[in-house]
């Protein structure tokens, strides 16, 4: 019965996409987290996080390792549900709908909130099949021209089309690391999400590949809301409009990126961005 209701009231409708982008602070946030606590088997990992994430911009989550930034990211599309003993309390909304609501189907939710992982993880299939995977499982297109179009469009947006268009049937694992990560981004955008979560997407890549991904992120923000976790402050400074600093499981400070990096209000943030803690 619960699932039935979910179906009738689909989260898939993407209302905000065609509205003009705006920086106006009065516009409701795409994602709003309030009072979020996460514990793993009783051990508190993040504590009382309140954060608004704006639509069609890049928000970077920074902080020393183990500070809870990845944990928070994985709360947004409920990937933490997969971890046994993980408990999330508090409230997260996507377009004012409770992500943890009882009528929310994670399958539908994750279609709207795509994710790119730390280690590039293309499936051991062809390049084409990797991109086509999402549309196929969600039944957006199962074969023929529709699917071809989605695959091409996604690869073009991910900036990979020119490199792979002649070998779509080649195994994805044969690509270089950077290409594989861009393929994973293409795979994520093929299902037409609103939000893309990126968990240290460049940590396994060389500087040149990293630069390409950063360019890509910059392009993508015109269409998608992007939340990126990074351990590199330089990267956060380069790609994000707003930056949130996590420390010891708490959200210390969130503000426009240039303010965080030049004139943070919290002492801990200052210490971190100047390199004295880390």
């Amino acid at each position: 019965m619960m699932l039935e209701r979910t179906h009738v009231q689909p989260l898939t409708v993407n209302s905000s996409r065609d509205e003009p982008s705006t920086d106006d602070a009065s516009v409701a946030p795409k994602i709003r987290a309030s009072g979020v606590n996460v514990s793993y088997s009783g051990r508190l990992a993040i504590n009382n996080v309140n954060l608004d994430i704006k639509a069609k911009s890049v928000t970077a989550l920074i902080g020393p390792s183990g500070c809870g930034k990845t944990t928070f990211l994985r709360c947004i599309n409920r990937m933490n549900d997969l971890i046994e003993g993980c408990e999330v309390t508090g409230n997260i909304t996507l377009d004012n709908e409770d992500v943890y609501g009882s009528d929310v189907d994670v399958v539908v939710l994750r279609r709207r909130i795509g994710m790119v992982f730390q280690k590039h993880n293309p499936f051991p299939k062809s390049i084409y099949e990797n991109v086509a995977y999402g549309p196929r499982i969600h039944g957006q297109a199962t074969k023929g021209d529709d699917l071809n179009q989605i695959v091409e469009r996604s690869l073009v947006r991910a900036g990979l089309w020119d490199e792979v268009k002649d070998r779509l049937d080649a195994p994805a694992t044969g690509l270089s690391g950077g290409q594989q990560q861009r393929l994973c981004i293409a795979r994520a955008i093929a299902v037409e999400p609103d939000v893309i979560l990126m968990d240290e997407p460049c940590s396994a890549l060389d500087p040149i590949a990293t630069a390409r991904i950063e360019e890509l992120i910059d392009d993508l923000k015109t269409k998608y809301t992007i939340v990126i976790v990074t351990h590199s402050m330089q990267q956060a400074a380069r790609v994000s409009q707003r930056t949130a600093f996590f420390h010891l499981g708490e959200l210390v400070e969130e503000n426009e990126a240039k303010i965080i990096f030049t004139n943070p209000s919290d002492e801990r943030t200052r210490a971190y961005v100047t390199g004295s803690i880390g």
Partner: peptide, 9 residues
């Protein structure tokens, strides 16, 4: 994770 992150069951 990659598959679940795309919304696969």
């Amino acid at each position: 994770e990659g598959s679940r992150g795309l919304g696969a069951t």
